[in-house]
């Protein structure tokens, strides 16, 4: 019993224990115990019966709702490709920062393009064909979390910037002074910088869409 319990715990170690998954886990454990008892009744030794009961179920991924049989190699390759594309887009949009004190962001964009480009080329040359069950639910959850965190980050940063910039008269007793395009650009850049980070939740959302596209049909197994 303890052996089977440990084995089933091991099968579920990567799963989030929702009430549905917990029910499934208990059902699998009781089925295994029943199977082992049957085998014991047929005259097998306790050790053999337990081993045979374990062999009857070696993976549970396909039993979990929201899991999808996925061409992992294709999924990873397309993720790398999307990452590279988004890094290039980030770099292009960060180019105007070269004229400001925030040029480091643009050089970071260039570095990200080089790193993701190398990673994509290396991954492209690998001839792997891995298939596995990946969780669509988890992927969608990651996407939601990313947008949530980014939304909060953006609101806090922009709110703080706006309070410091437009409320300078209240905090520091110094009126806001926008008397030319330079001051205007300075304020715009401070609001533009946090907006650029939108590429992070967009990339994570793209990964989620790629996962759906990388579905592998059962007959291909």
């Amino acid at each position: 019993m303890i052996d089977l319990q440990k084995y089933v715990d091991g099968l579920f170690r990567h799963q989030r224990l929702t009430p549905e998954v917990q029910d499934l886990k208990e059902e699998i454990l009781s089925n295994m115990i029943a199977k082992r008892d049957d085998l014991l009744a047929q005259g097998l030794s306790a050790e053999n019966a337990t081993e045979k009961a374990k062999e009857s179920l070696s993976a549970i991924d396909y039993l979990i709702d929201g899991n999808q049989l996925t061409d992992v190699s294709k999924y990873h390759l397309e993720c790398m490709q999307t990452l590279l594309l988004n890094c290039i887009v980030f770099w292009i949009f960060s180019l105007p920062l070269l004229f400001t004190h925030y040029a480091l962001f643009s050089y970071t964009g260039l570095a990200l393009v080089i790193i993701s480009g190398c990673a994509y080329i290396l991954r492209k040359d690998k001839k792997e064909n891995t298939v596995a069950y990946l969780s669509i639910t988890a992927s969608k959850r990651r996407s939601k979390i990313a947008w949530g965190i980014w939304g909060m980050f953006f609101l806090v940063i922009v709110g703080t910037m706006a309070a410091l910039t437009f409320g300078s008269d209240i905090w520091f007793g110094r009126p806001l002074n926008i008397d030319g395009p330079y001051q205007m650009a300075n304020i715009a850049v401070r609001l533009y910088l946090p907006l650029l980070t939108i590429i992070i939740p967009i990339t994570i959302s793209n990964f989620s869409k790629i996962l759906l596209k990388s579905r592998r049909e059962y007959e291909d197994e």
Binding site: L85, W91, L95
Partner: peptide, 21 residues
């Protein structure tokens, strides 16, 4: 299509970067 887009955008980015830098 995505690879073509990558090459196109990369070319634009490199040209813009060189002109500015």
């Amino acid at each position: 299509k995505k690879n073509k887009m990558i090459i196109g955008l990369l070319a634009i980015a490199v040209i813009l970067f060189c002109i500015i830098q």
